[in-house]
Design a binder for these strands. Structure first.
Length: 110
DNA sequence: CGGCTGACGAAAA
DNA sequence: CTTTTCGCCAGCC
């Protein structure tokens, strides 16, 4: 349990623990942090320093498994290519078999 | 301090 | 299916 840090730190810490070939959602992270409605803060926190912290941001998508953040990467295809490279099926900016790739921090991380 | 914004989410229409 | 609305909360102007 990581608590006692800033919201950012908590987000970064969880994202870093996402295993390759898996992905989680902003809402799941927010819920894990205690603010289940603070999903926006999660994405915002990452956009604020994902590149600085070397976070695997491509492994964090929205609840629908959509690569909503690809427009922030170097190219609109970077996120998808990176996920596919890790074994995740992505089609039209959306993860296929999302429920099977979904990595829930509350469940996997305890 | 007030208002706006945002890689979201869920519900309502 | 689309569009709207509300909630959440930190950062910025």
């Amino acid at each position: 349990m990581k608590q006692g840090y800033d919201f950012f730190t908590d987000v970064y810490d969880v994202v870093r623990q996402i295993p390759a070939g898996r992905a989680t959602s902003y809402g799941a992270i927010a819920a894990y942090l205690g603010s289940k409605r603070g999903a926006r803060m999660v994405g915002w926190a990452m956009s604020s320093g994902y590149t600085e912290h070397g976070l695997p941001a491509h492994r964090v998508v929205n609840k629908q498994g959509e690569l909503s953040a690809r427009h922030l990467f170097e190219t609109p295809t970077t996120m998808q290519e990176r996920l596919e490279s890790e074994g995740v099926e992505v089609k039209d900016g959306r993860i296929q078999h999302w429920e099977k790739y979904f990595w829930d921090p509350e469940k996997e991380l305890s």
